[in-house]
Write a protein that binds this DNA or RNA. Structure first.
Lengths: 234, 234
DNA sequence: CCTACAGTGTGGTTGGACCACAGGAGGACG
DNA sequence: CGTCCTCCTGTGGTCCAACCACACTGTAGG
């Protein structure tokens, strides 16, 4: 077993035992190195891995943002990993989209009509309805947050994280695809209308219809942008 | 931007541009450090991250297994990341199980009856039917491979990877849970029968029934082992 | 009372050194 | 001529010592 894996195992043990929780602080790198009788290099390699996994966040200087603190951001971790595997062409973009449809339609079907996350989703929709002063990038950013809020309403943290990571992994592609659209304004208003319909279905408690609408919404967008089932290679 | 991220960006660019593909070899650490005018430490940190993400594999010595070569193993990467987040208690085990049911039942419903992966699944079932000389660990190992083969038959690499990673993330728990079972032999024969029923449904093209059987199979096991929907905290 | 500054502890980065490992090239020996 | 052994080379793995940039903290000076 390599040295940095020993550090990794120690930290995972601390987490599992509850001696280290989200918001907690790891010992300083030099201290930890001395405690485990390894070099600071190995400690740093372990921390880098944890950082890439969204388990810790390292900050320089002093104060609340300094030091290495435990966080929990599975979305970012899974997202960057998926993005790299897409780059190796071993994860087809079409499969990513298909999985996203699966997870999101399930979440829409399971979301409870009285979930507080739906209020946030509604607020985001209101923001997207402002026709003026909203660039394509702004619109897509709000779109991401809307879909994420909707997924959160289902109450399954794993599904939320995976959904977000899928979205993140192909975000670069999605942004490029907007240039393929014949008429962005027309697409945007269609997306707005579909969003409202989805939210209304969830609010009414009609999970089946909400799931169908979400699936059609996502598949329709990618089909229009020219990323159909045929383009299994990016 | 930190130095190791520069290295990461360079490697991701090489992958996206196709100048680096699975099976390819990264330049030696010292060479890469000189090319990018960074320290070898920073190169190593980047490689560690890629290794944790299942994108590369580093080997010492000489020969085919030496050097840093590009692979693509998203399952291991996502699995360890999920396991750590479970350790932080921000991903409830119940949500993992629920997501696994979702993905696996979808895969069972979508698997094509003539998929070659089903032959492998059948062979694994034959191996599990040998009542003698099969420890609990061996049985579970074959079980993992059976479920993985079944998921692969759906033809979606992302779903397969995520399914496998979910299984891996809670593998430790699943192994411990066997001690909760009142009668392992009885459970094992039930699991065997359910496996055969699932495979038969898939082979018959009855995706809907296969999906139902898979969901009942997984949920039933965890319920019997005492990991119901109530235990959202491990 | 407020400002300016040195002090302290954090992660970030670098260069160098040494180790273990695995294969290849060459010579020594049968 | 073939085989075995040894040395050499290049790889990642590990460690050390030093320095940097940063952000807060306490203190001295105005």
């Amino acid at each position: 077993m390599r040295t940095h894996q020993l550090v990794l195992a120690w930290i995972e043990d601390q987490l599992s035992a509850g001696r280290l929780a989200v918001g907690g602080r790891l010992p300083a790198e030099r201290t930890l190195a001395e405690q485990l009788t390894v070099s600071r290099t190995s400690v740093r390699e372990a921390i880098r891995i944890l950082e890439a996994m969204g388990v810790v966040r390292a900050g320089v200087g002093s104060g609340p943002d300094a030091g290495t603190v435990v966080i929990s951001d599975p979305t970012a971790a899974l997202g960057s990993a998926l993005r790299l595997h897409v780059a190796t062409q071993h994860l087809p973009v079409a499969d990513i989209v298909e999985t996203r449809v699966l997870l999101e339609s399930w979440a829409a079907g399971k979301a409870r009509p009285d979930a507080p996350e739906l209020d946030e989703a509604a607020a985001l929709l209101a923001g997207m309805d402002q026709a003026e002063g909203l660039s394509v990038g702004d619109f897509l950013a709000l779109d991401v947050r809307f879909h994420f809020a909707l997924a959160n309403a289902a109450g399954n943290a794993v599904v939320s994280a995976m959904m977000g990571s899928l979205r993140e992994a192909i975000q670069g592609y999605a942004a490029e695809l907007t240039s393929n659209l014949p008429d962005w304004d027309a697409t945007a208003s269609r997306l707005r209308a579909e969003h409202h319909a989805i939210l209304a279905a969830v609010r009414k408690g009609d999970g089946g219809r909400a799931a169908e609408l979400v699936a059609a919404h996502i598949e329709g967008y990618y089909r229009e942008a020219g990323l159909g089932a045929g383009s299994r290679e990016p």
